[in-house]
Nucleic acid binder design. Sequence first.
DNA 1: TAAAGAAAAATTGCATACAAGAATTTCATT
DNA 2: AATGAAATTCTTGTATGCAATTTTTCTTTA
Lengths: 226, 226
Amino acid sequence: MPHTLRQKIADLVLNGELKPGDRLDELSLADRFGVSRTPIREAIRQLGASGLIEIRPRRSAVVRSFDRTELSEAFEAMGEIEALCASLAAVRMNEAERLKLRAIMAASEDLSARNDRPAALEMDFEFHGHLHDGARNRMLKTVAEETRLRITPYSAALYMMEGYNADLRRPHLQHAAIADAVLAGNGDDAARLMREHIAQALISLQQFFEDTQSRSDAPKVKGEVR
Amino acid sequence: MPHTLRQKIADLVLNGELKPGDRLDELSLADRFGVSRTPIREAIRQLGASGLIEIRPRRSAVVRSFDRTELSEAFEAMGEIEALCASLAAVRMNEAERLKLRAIMAASEDLSARNDRPAALEMDFEFHGHLHDGARNRMLKTVAEETRLRITPYSAALYMMEGYNADLRRPHLQHAAIADAVLAGNGDDAARLMREHIAQALISLQQFFEDTQSRSDAPKVKGEVR
DNA sequence: TAAAGAAAAATTGCATACAAGAATTTCATT
DNA sequence: AATGAAATTCTTGTATGCAATTTTTCTTTA
């Protein structure tokens, strides 16, 4: 469903127009999308239940923000879930899926060489999503996608930032190593490499926030890592 | 939040008053809880997003039902998540938590000996929930609770049924083995035993549905395993 | 000048109304 | 009696209005 109201509001968060801590004003959103508050409220409740935003009784919903502890917990959980997907995909992917994985890696190679960050971010999603599918378990895929969704406001910001992930080839090479293990049918290696990949992402993200928070010229943005 | 409308509606599903496939009529629910359709709709959307019920545009929402494949996928995913919780809990639980785990096991011992099924089911929830807490990772806990929530309509039905889990001591003994591993700080054993425990539960559930479906006297209930 | 408090404005929670679509029943035809 | 079409009833989707609460602004006071 590319055009559901729920997705449109989620997109505001995912593309960074609304940042962690920002309020979701029902009336503004209603005007913006040309509907009344009723469907806006329903969409907001759904996004609240899926954990992308935080609902506070009698007060505006806000884009969910994580403190340092929550962020590292989220990445630990995601690391394990992604590792599980990767190890299952290594054993369960069929030939068509393995072929598509190669295609994704080729495209990713190209995009990272050209330093096309928006497209590389898309391809990052594609890569992980393809492993979720390859694990052949819809409940696991749901869990993986939900977990990824929750931290996207943070991981996407990192991806777009020059200076962090300075060379897009680094995450690409990690993906490539994972893909090799998957294609070789080596689930244990795939899982281990995936855990390392996610752990690396957390470290980059933490460095990023250390820096932006210590810079006194940048007034602490409400809702960033507390 | 013991009294939120969302929880009240969820309880209808969790205590079995509404079974998989049953429709959630907005007006009936509104009358029942003495509110208008608006808050009912919002609650239904939230439960839809958390996966307990299924939302179908322009048609009544229904309690989510799983076919055989989905059920085994759900148990596979849950097995891994619970195993992860157990292995982390084995390493991370503090003394107070370990003490409480012993208390839970003692209570469970008693309840299973007395064949008190409702109370034993409660204690089963308590046991798993305590391991979710012991893993010291709120995101993981959220994921684990959500996954458990989705299959509760099935696992709870099994637990209450005489003849399946014929002797409540069987799941109790599995729990006891897991608890021993956790208390010994042996994460790998805890994880392995937990996987086996969840796999056993799936097998019991599958047998249960094989039987109820093959009995011609029981007209196939809409929404049960298809 | 800063803090505290009161008044005003803005925002959420819920009920109600109506339009549009789905489900069910009725009724004619074979 | 079975089939199918039309009409009726039921149900969902959305807009709007009002009360209750929160947030902001303005005034008063130390």
